[in-house]
């Protein structure tokens, strides 16, 4: 299957070395610190001491915030890897027909993904403000005179509202899939049309199977992006009300930079990595990734 490795071994190595160096520069030391210190009591301004599994025990036995964070993180990964990716792929399949609006939609859809998450958080915070925010103003205009829902801080709506700040905005998935769709030979679609297949049928039976790898990649990227979701939540709810919208990155941030407890934060960080590994494993299994289409 693969091209001859031994013949090109020098090139293969030469092409890998820069990536390996960059990886080591960025992550090797960080990973060692992360894993190592998760077994220590490391509080800012104090001596570091080895405590074995105590951090982990503390997290999993009596830390409500942590358990809630894990739960929310897992739910958000699930939603992102399924609903979010589905929305993105659907838009891509519609745009792939290149009807008059396709370029426009592709650009506009990308806007929320272009904006830095800090700026986007700030925008949503103002947009959703119960008092002068646009959303409630529209609803008031539509007739509900005294409408003043506090979307972000009300227990009933906060989780949903926060989720909606990223769930529908799948433009990255869309452009990835669009690029891949363009690579499918036109002749395949032509012959299907000649055979009388409908567009829906073509999408379901030809496009989607051929997109398997890229959809899997999208699911991994989208799912794992939930392990880094910090700014948006920090700018809007800060994990509240209570711990309703807390996730692991928020938990880690608060423990490290607010409570000064780097040991506990890094134990949570290790947990986060493990959750991520399981996520990647499940998704790559589900999509049988890594096999060429041809």
């Amino acid at each position: 299957m693969a091209l001859n490795t031994t013949k090109n071994i020098k090139w293969v190595i030469a092409f890998l070395v820069p990536t390996i160096l960059l990886f080591l520069f960025m992550y090797a030391f960080s990973l060692i610190i992360l894993f190592g210190s998760s077994f220590t009591d490391w509080t800012l301004g104090m001596k570091v001491s080895f405590t074995g599994l105590r951090n982990y025990l503390e997290l999993f036995t009596d830390n409500e915030d942590f358990l809630k964070s894990v739960f929310n993180t897992v739910v958000w990964i699930g939603l992102q890897a399924t609903v979010h990716v589905t929305i993105g792929v659907t838009v891509a399949l519609i745009l792939a027909r290149r009807e008059f609006y396709w370029k426009f939609v592709r650009t506009v859809y990308m806007i929320p993904n272009i904006i830095s998450s800090a700026a986007l958080g700030m925008m949503f915070l103002c947009f959703l403000n119960p008092d002068f925010g646009a959303l409630n103003s529209i609803i008031r205009l539509a007739g509900q005179k005294d409408f003043s829902q506090n979307w972000l801080m009300d227990y009933k709506t906060s989780f949903f509202t926060v989720t909606m700040m990223w769930l529908p905005f799948a433009a990255v998935v869309t452009i990835l899939v669009l690029a891949e769709l363009a690579a499918i030979p036109e002749s395949i679609f032509e012959s299907a049309r000649v055979d009388g297949a409908t567009e829906l049928g073509i999408n379901l039976h030809i496009s989607l199977p051929m997109l398997r790898n890229i959809i899997g990649t999208c699911a991994i990227l989208a799912g794992t992006s939930m392990l880094q979701k910090l700014d948006m939540i920090l700018m809007t709810t800060g994990g509240g009300p209570g711990n309703r919208t807390m996730n692991l990155p928020i938990f880690i941030y608060q423990n490290a930079l607010k409570d000064n407890n780097f040991g506990l934060a890094n134990a949570a960080g290790v947990t986060l990595i493990l959750i991520g590994i399981v996520t990647v494993w499940i998704i790559s299994r589900a999509f049988r990734m890594g096999h060429s289409n041809t």
Binding site: M153, D154, Y155, G238, G239, G240, P241, G242, N243, Q254, K258, D259, N260
Partner: peptide, 19 residues
């Protein structure tokens, strides 16, 4: 301490919603 202030901010909504 700084983290107690953060705890205030975090708990006030819970207090307001009678959680």
């Amino acid at each position: 301490q700084a983290n107690v202030i953060d705890t205030f901010a975090k708990l006030y909504p819970e207090l307001a919603f009678e959680k």
